[in-house]
């Protein structure tokens, strides 16, 4: 019996066993129905309705007019730019501050439990509550922040009333609320780095700074990639904090696409609002897909 004589074509004596898989396919059904009806169907419908003037009862096809309007109206363009600025600022700060806090919290510092809890807790608090609280704290004359700065002789700015500053102030509050999540993600990434690398680096005579730069930073890249992706998508989609704090104001100074979508919806411009959705979707796709590809490609090299 040699291999060559045995290697006949497969399935000559086909007796297909029809056994049921032990993993029932119908387990997908409930989730699939809810997800398809309430998420996928509206998403596909939005592609059509974004090309219409729409009253919910009837839709008039107007081609790309809604999108043209998005690129024409200065306040809509402003919203587009603000969205990107907001996402970049918040995710950038969360990466830097989150990593620093995580490095601090994984070192031999006292009161680690307290620090970790205090930094993380805002993640769980109502965004509206946080927004309202900081609106009060950031009041230009009666807010606690400026009153506190006055003690040191600093005249605080109009955090939310200065059109040049409002967006960044909201972003700052976003970082305050969200940095705890970035921190715990980084902590999980840092404790997963085997101690051997640090010991090897120490034998090679690395300074703490070199340790951080050549060991910690490259090895916690998966965490960095998670933090960036999560907070960047979150930043692009952000609505509740902005709405609770400035409603896009003053003027249109802190409008983002999400707040524009809501405003157009309130005003009854359903087609335009839906076009805003599509624009946001395209923006996310255009920015996030290359970003994750970049982050993952770098990982593959290590």
């Amino acid at each position: 019996m040699s291999a060559s004589t045995m290697a006949g074509s497969p399935g000559q004596t086909e007796t297909r066993a029809i056994k049921r898989s032990p993993y029932p396919g119908w387990f997908f059904t409930p989730a699939a129905i809810v997800y398809t009806v309430l998420f996928l169907a509206p998403t596909f419908a939005s592609l059509y309705f974004s090309l219409t003037r729409w009253t919910l009862f009837d839709a008039t096809f107007i081609g790309l007019d809604n999108f043209a309007q998005f690129l024409r109206e200065p306040f809509l363009i402003k919203g587009l730019i603000n969205t990107v600025i907001y996402a970049v600022v918040t995710s950038g700060l969360k990466v830097v501050v989150g990593l620093l806090l995580a490095v601090m919290l994984t070192s031999q510092i006292v009161a680690r439990g307290y620090l970790r809890s205090v930094i993380f807790f805002p993640v769980l608090v109502s965004t509206v509550g946080v927004g309202i609280t900081f609106t009060v704290l950031m009041h230009p004359t009666q807010g606690m922040i400026n009153e506190g700065l006055a003690i040191f002789g600093i005249t605080g700015p109009g955090w939310l009333t200065d059109p040049n500053l409002a967006l960044y102030s909201v972003a700052l509050v976003d970082v305050w609320k969200g940095v705890g999540l970035a921190t715990v993600i980084y902590i999980a990434g840092l404790v997963a780095i085997p101690r051997d690398y640090y010991e090897a680096a120490r034998i090679d005579g690395a300074t703490p700074w070199q340790n951080f730069w050549y060991v910690t930073l490259p090895l916690c890249r998966p965490a960095t990639s998670t933090v960036i992706t999560l907070s960047f998508i979150g930043g692009l989609r952000t609505f509740d904090l902005i709405w609770a704090m400035t409603k896009g104001g003053p003027g249109f100074a802190s409008d983002t696409i999400a707040s524009v979508i809501y405003k157009q919806y309130q005003a009854g411009f359903y087609g335009l609002s839906t076009a805003g959705n599509v624009v946001l979707f395209i923006l996310i796709a255009v920015l996030v897909v290359p970003l994750t590809m970049f982050l993952n490609r770098k990982q593959g090299h290590e």
Partner: peptide, 20 residues
């Protein structure tokens, strides 16, 4: 589809239309 669900912002007005 799962990854899309994490990224794609929900299409709000069509959802309202559908819920109606």
């Amino acid at each position: 589809l799962i990854l899309a669900g994490l990224m794609v912002p929900p299409a709000v007005v069509p959802t309202i239309w559908l819920l109606q």
